[in-house]
Design a protein around this nucleic acid. Structure first.
Lengths: 152, 152
DNA sequence: CATAAGTCGACTAGAACGATCGACAAGATA
DNA sequence: TATCTTGTCGATCGTTCTAGTCGACTTATG
């Protein structure tokens, strides 16, 4: 149940791209510096985001990366799926295709509910929200609850 | 963002223990068979659950494992924390101690919201619920929504 | 005492994680 | 056209995690 460095880097890089004027390429070097991401590793990540169509790039001097689509249409969930695969897989299998016996019969429904609640956050936040520093109201409300900050 | 085999096995084993008459030990062999868990691996897992106090054991013939506390007081979240560590860590770090620059400034709040939503499910479901085959109403409602079942 | 259980630590093959590196391709400018 | 700057892509690599296996040992029961 952890978010990997790669996923975290990917979201931060996308947020930084969303903060740049649309159509204006940002150099990988600048991205790496502003978000403190290892340069070579960032290359890998940008490559994956590129093949998924989430970023476009220009070569040469004046080159760099930019968003492949409007920032307001790119959710955090989408980025995570590109670099990490499906949200909330159990042993690498999607929860809807699990089948358990005995006392665990209802367990798949719990995993489904987990995934649904993940999506309720991750599909609601876009990189435009991050770049603007404004989260959707309901997400902000969840995050503002002091109990959510306890190191549970 | 995945649930490991170990975590899945641990929850299923606990559910099976919760289904047995309280105080009655269940043999590891029987647990392994009823939930189809590799026997030796189950030993490891039971060991961890034991040191966390979630299960108690008896040795000798007539021995086996039983819950360390009433089934209704043991949540799925607690089991996951024992075998997988904190819910929703980012690069191994708890989200409340992250600090990002620039366009990613609000990102920790997103991770906090993710964790809060995970907890809303995992801390609400107990092994007693699983054993009885009855999930809490709000969880059941989330899991019943047909859209939650799409392979998104 | 024989036997049936749990206990515990060591070990391992393979995959994933988190990068690093180098050769190459393409656009911009002179 | 030469050259510089930037992105592209695949190979490699050390470490950690995953998912187990195994065996020697301890504890209860009949």
């Amino acid at each position: 149940m952890r978010i990997t460095a790669k996923a975290d880097y990917a979201v931060r890089a996308m947020a930084e791209l969303a903060a740049a004027p649309p159509g204006q390429p940002v150099k990988a070097e600048a991205l790496a510096a502003s978000q403190d991401i290892p340069r070579n590793f960032l290359d890998n990540i940008l490559g994956e985001l590129r093949s998924a169509g989430l970023v476009r790039t220009l070569r040469g001097p004046e080159g760099g990366s930019m968003l492949g689509r409007p920032a307001a249409e790119i959710t955090v969930a989408e980025i995570l799926r590109v670099v990490e695969g499906p949200l909330a897989a159990v042993r690498g299998v999607r929860p809807e295709s699990l089948d358990y016996a005995g006392a665990a019969t209802r367990l798949p429904e719990v995993w489904i509910a987990v995934r649904a609640n993940l999506r309720a956050v991750l599909e609601r936040v876009t990189v435009a929200d991050l770049a603007a520093g404004k989260l959707p109201a309901d997400i902000g409300r969840i995050a503002k609850n002091p109990e959510a900050w306890l190191p549970h």
